[in-house]
Structure formats: structure tokens, C-alpha cells
Write a protein that binds this DNA or RNA. Structure first.
Lengths: 349, 349
DNA sequence: TAGCAATCTGACAACGTTGTCGAGTGAGTT
DNA sequence: AACTCACTCGACAACGTTGTCAGATTGCTA
């Protein structure tokens, strides 16, 4: 059994180590940081003292003093750490950061602009080396100070407004259009739109893509078949029930967000329309392939987005410089079944 | 040439603010911390300077100096931030912490003991005020120093070994037994077990619960119908295929973990056995209710666990003290369909 | 033997902030 | 007029660490 010495008061500091080892704090510092230039005897003495006291360096004090002042932590301001998109993003950031011994601070904004500011304040105040932001507010002009001070900032999924920084975005417009074209090509002309809060830029873009794709085919969507501002599964389920109950119900649905898709699936299921009404969702989700029918989606790749965002961050932290750039990550139509249910105008070919 | 207005290098500090406002740093500090005892005129001057310079306090420097040295951050050492259990836990911690303006540091261990230590080292070195740990290692004796130094530590989901701290656990044994009793009561006697790495304590407990519940009914499980160490969906799918292909295939399956359940569902689906072989899974997952048949599970409540863990942490941070205690959170059998498929020994009642 | 470079070591200051304490001011009391 | 008291305010030190620099020691060369 190893002897556990009684720690004096609070945590031991470098002073305590130095005292016990009979050297100066500076020499102790040299040993624990591996700076070198210390005789073997003193190295051993310091290492003994470190072990005996259970000394752990205080990284915050160290980064306060060190030249570059880096804290080796980057902050992620996410929609909600527990949703699959955010947590896949979080994980991708962590994977890249891990190789450099950098930690991730993450927080959930919940589409609340005030919370967004509070989180960013909390993170910058804690000297995060960089910021990855999925914004919820109208404008992020308040970030200008940080950006000027040289903190790398990357926006993900939603474009920056009022501040000029790198961004990793999805081509929502094209993705939505792709979904709609797919449905039209399977014989549908009456395609409903169910989407998230219009306050969210990506929701607006997806709606635009939907409208324009329809118009490409000379179709004008029925206003009753458009539902905005659905932010929970319950909202979406209720809206879908309403739309499907009306006369001239649509033969296909485009659901422009994750939770909306799931809520709509519940409605379809309980109305026993899931084998009859076609559905394409935006954003993939776990088990989509195991449902009956399997759900066709326009998939985003949050992992790829996270990795790209992290690599931009680290390149800037390494001193590379370039004008703020927006990167687009491709969406991918994943054909599984629900989107291929034939509509009334199916080509006879 | 006139004197260049010295563009402050990097971020403005309290010194810069004080200088511009014509007060001492201490007075500037009093204003920004709201300590009070400053005349209105100087308050205004300082606030002007803060606004003009875009000053943000350096929270790490502040916590270095402040009496209690708190960093208002707690660390969460999780299995994998992107899996639903971990991220629900993470979110619950965040929700409780948010009310106190405390941030969460989270990291993924991936069942790697070395990574667990590295993460905890990184977090303690950054002066996290407390630790929430889902351990992966055999022993966490190395935490003794931290615990002695007074850092609150709570283990979640898996018990601490080699260190005496609070824990929030699930009664895996009882939950697994409940699943098995349920299957037996629906006429099954040949019930397979498919579970995660035996190195994980919870997996062992669930297996124990499985075995003992069977033995309560006088059933001895067939060794060919037991598969351990399945840690990915693919592992689980392969194992399920093997078990279901053999002669005397089981009529029911108990899947002891999330991903295992999903892998097994894939196998059942592709073998077209999903309506014939009963299944109860341990741990709930999104969309379980939308599958065909809907999946019966023994649900854990990661949110409740996270909230409980956080409240223990904060009570200790608030100075309350008590001997380390283990709390058990109940599991709940969620009956949905897959677990109620009748077996050959169904009572004729 | 003196001279010199190379190596090791510690005193000191500083990072940005706040706790302590005592000095200064002015109003109110005797 | 002398005194007390409440209130502001700033000088200074300190939190735990590391950068700077100069002093001490050593070994080697001339």
C-alpha cells in the first residue's frame, strides 16, 4: 500500500514542491514543464516531491503567465448538446482537438439569443482560445471585439450576420430543392412543406429551395399545405394531422428538419398513411433505415462539418491567415423508401 | 510626429480601463464586479471606458486571486458525448449548472482507461470545481488526491472502485431481471442474452440479473445463446445472426445495451424474424416506439441521473458534507410490443 | 595559473485580478 | 473647535506560474 501523505492546506503548489525538494520554484517549474537544464539529482528530488505531495500543475495560472496565454480550450456554442446534430458536431470537434490536447467547452443555446450571448460571454471570459458557434440570434455584431482581438471564430450550420468570420454551411437551398425534385420525379405535384421556426436562417433557406423547386416544375404550392414554426415533435405532429385531414390532402410531404420529420412520422403512422403518403426529410436521424417504410432523407454530415470547422480553427491558431471564407458542405439524398412512394402523376415509362 | 495612441496589444485589461477612466485598478475592479462603494461619477467613467475598450474581465485571473478560487466550471467525463445516454446526462448537468452560471467541460472516454485518466488530468489541471465521472477503468484510486483536496466527485452509471465518493447508479441487476421475467411471463423459456463488454461493470450486473431471473424460473440458459463483448451495432448484428441461425434458436432475446439492441433489430429485420422473436432491450432509445413492432425496453432515466448528480455536486460545493453515498435510480419497463410476442409456453389463461 | 565559455540555478518581476488596509474627505456631534 | 464616523479611494501584496537575467559553478583551453 502506498503511503498517502496528508495534503497540507488545499492543493500543493509549486512552492510546496520546491520547498520539499530544496530547490527554487523556478527549478521546480523547469522540471515539471520539462524545460531542461537541470541536473539529474535535482530532477529526481523534484519528481519525488511531486509524487509525494500529489502535485498537479495549475494550468490556468500557467496560461496566465505564459507568453501566448493560450488555455488550450475551445468553446462550442451549440443548439442543444443532447440533439444528434449538435452532439455529432461536438464529437467531431473533440476528435480533432484531442490530438492537440485541447479541451472543448460546450453549451446549449436552445434558440435563445440571450442565452447565446450569455454563453459566449462566459466562454470568452474564461479565455477560450477559439469559438465555434451555431448562432440563434439575428446578428452577432457583439462578437466584433473578440474577432478583432484575434480569437478565431467559425460559424457552423448558420451564417454569421454583422461580423465577418469563417463559416461552414450546408447548401440548404439545394438540398431542399433536391428533395422536392425527387418527389416530383416520383409523380407528386401536391407536396406539403413542414418546417422549423422561420426565425432560423436555415429554415428560410430550405423553404426557399422548396418553393423554387416547385416553381421549376410550374407548380404553385397550396398555402394550406405549408406549416412554419414547428419546433417540437408535438408541433409537427399536430400540423401534419391538420394538413392530412383537409380535403385535397397532399400526396407527399417535405419535412425540413429532424424533429419535424419524426413528429410527422407519428402523425402518418397513427393515421395509417405511412405507406401511402410519400415523405422526404431534411437531416438524417438514427434508425431512419429501420422504420417502415424506411425514411428517405437529405442527409447533412455534422461530423464532416465539425472536422472542417476544427481544422479551420487550428489553422488560424497556428498562425495561418486568410480572409474570412464560407465553406459549403454537400448534402446527400439517401434513398430508403418513404420518398419513393409513387404519386398520382407517375410517369408510365 | 505626435505620439502614437498605443493600440493596446491583445485584449484590454483592467489597467487599461482604469487608466482611461482616470481611476485606480481597484476602483475599476469595484465597478465591474459591482462591489459598490464608488461614486456615481466614477462608476460612469469606468463604464464608459469599459464600453469604449470592449473590456471583458479575465475570469481565470480573477478566480486565481479570489478567496475560494472557484472556476465555476464542472467537468463531465462521459462515455461518448455523442451517444444519447451521455448527451442526455450532459444536458441535465448543464440545465442544473446553468442556474448557477456554472459551465460544463465534457469529454469522451470511449471505454479507454488511459483516456479516462488523461481527461481527468486535463480537467483537474484546469481547476474544475467538481467532477462527474462515468468511469471506464478498473480502479480510480488515482482520484484519491483530488477527493482529499476537497473536490466534489460523483460517479454516474458505474460504481467507483478504489475511491470513496458519491455515486448515482442504476439497479442493473433488477432491471435485467425485470426484462427476463417479462419475457418468461409471455411464454418464453429460451431467452438469449446479448451484451456489451464484460469489462464494463454494468454489463456484468445485467448479465447477473439475466442469469438469476432465469434460474428463479428453473431455467438454465444455453451457452450458445449468450454473447458478450458486443460493443458496436455490427458486433451485435453478427452475433444475433449467428444465434438465430443455429438450431434450437431462442424464441426471445434480451439485449443488454442500446447499440446492441439496434444491431439485433437489424438482424431480426433482415432475417424477417422481427414479428416472431420477442425482444426486450436495456436502455431506451429514440424512435423505439415507431419501429415495427415497437420495442419494449427497460428504460433508464439519464436526465434524472444527471440532475441528481448535479444536485449532489452543488450541495457539496455549498458546503454540505456527508459520508459518500450511493443513490439508485429506478428503471422502468416500457411495454411497447416487441416484448409481448408470445412464446411457446404461453399460459392458456 | 589565469581566463573563458558552457552550464546550472535562483531572485525577481510579471500575467490580470482582488483582498487588505490605511489615507483622505466631508458631514454630523459634542 | 475638536472629535467621531461613514464613506470613497488607491497603494500594495498576493493568487500560482513562467520569462528574464545575472550570479555561481564547473570544466576546458591557453
Amino acid at each position: 500500500m502506498t503511503e498517502e501523505p496528508v495534503a497540507p492546506r488545499g492543493r500543493p503548489t509549486l512552492r510546496d514542491v520546491a520547498l520539499l525538494a530544496g530547490v527554487s520554484t523556478k527549478t521546480a517549474s523547469r522540471v515539471v514543464t520539462g524545460e531542461g537544464g537541470v541536473t539529474a539529482a535535482k530532477v529526481a528530488a523534484v519528481q519525488d516531491a511531486v509524487a509525494k505531495l500529489g502535485y498537479r500543475p495549475n494550468f490556468t495560472a500557467s496560461s496566465l503567465r505564459r507568453a501566448n496565454g493560450r488555455t488550450a480550450a475551445i468553446a462550442a456554442v451549440l443548439e442543444d448538446v443532447s440533439n444528434p446534430f449538435s452532439s455529432a458536431l461536438h464529437r467531431a470537434l473533440e476528435d480533432v482537438a484531442r490530438d492537440r490536447d485541447v479541451m472543448i467547452f460546450a453549451g446549449s443555446v436552445d434558440e435563445d439569443p440571450a442565452r447565446e450571448r450569455a454563453l459566449i460571454h462566459a466562454f470568452t471570459t474564461r479565455q477560450a482560445d477559439a469559438l465555434v458557434v451555431v448562432p440563434a440570434s439575428d446578428s452577432q455584431h457583439y462578437l466584433a471585439g473578440e474577432v478583432n482581438a484575434g480569437t478565431p471564430v467559425v460559424f457552423v450550420d448558420r451564417p454569421p450576420v454583422g461580423v465577418d468570420v469563417d463559416a461552414v454551411l450546408v447548401d440548404n437551398h439545394a438540398g431542399a430543392a433536391q428533395a422536392v425534385h425527387h418527389l416530383v420525379s416520383h409523380g407528386h405535384r401536391d407536396i406539403a412543406y413542414l418546417g422549423d421556426l422561420l426565425a432560423i436562417a436555415t429554415a428560410r433557406q430550405r423553404f426557399q429551395g422548396y418553393k423554387e423547386a416547385l416553381s421549376d416544375h410550374g407548380i404553385r404550392p397550396s398555402p394550406e399545405h405549408i406549416a412554419h414554426d414547428l419546433h417540437t415533435e408535438e408541433d409537427a405532429e399536430a400540423a401534419a394531422r391538420r394538413i392530412l385531414a383537409g380535403e385535397d390532402a397532399p400526396t407527399a410531404l417535405f419535412t425540413a428538419q429532424n424533429l419535424v420529420t419524426i413528429g410527422v412520422l407519428r402523425a402518418l403512422r397513427s393515421l395509417r398513411l405511412h405507406e401511402r403518403v410519400a415523405l422526404v426529410g431534411f437531416d438524417d436521424f438514427p434508425l431512419a433505415d429501420l422504420l417502415q417504410p424506411p425514411v428517405t432523407v437529405v442527409a447533412q454530415d455534422p461530423s464532416a462539418m465539425g472536422r472542417l470547422a476544427a481544422s479551420l480553427i487550428f489553422r488560424r491558431l497556428d498562425g495561418e491567415a486568410w480572409p474570412p471564407t464560407t465553406h459549403y458542405v454537400q448534402t446527400r439524398l439517401v434513398v430508403r423508401g418513404s420518398g419513393e412512394i409513387q404519386g398520382p402523376h407517375a410517369a408510365a415509362s
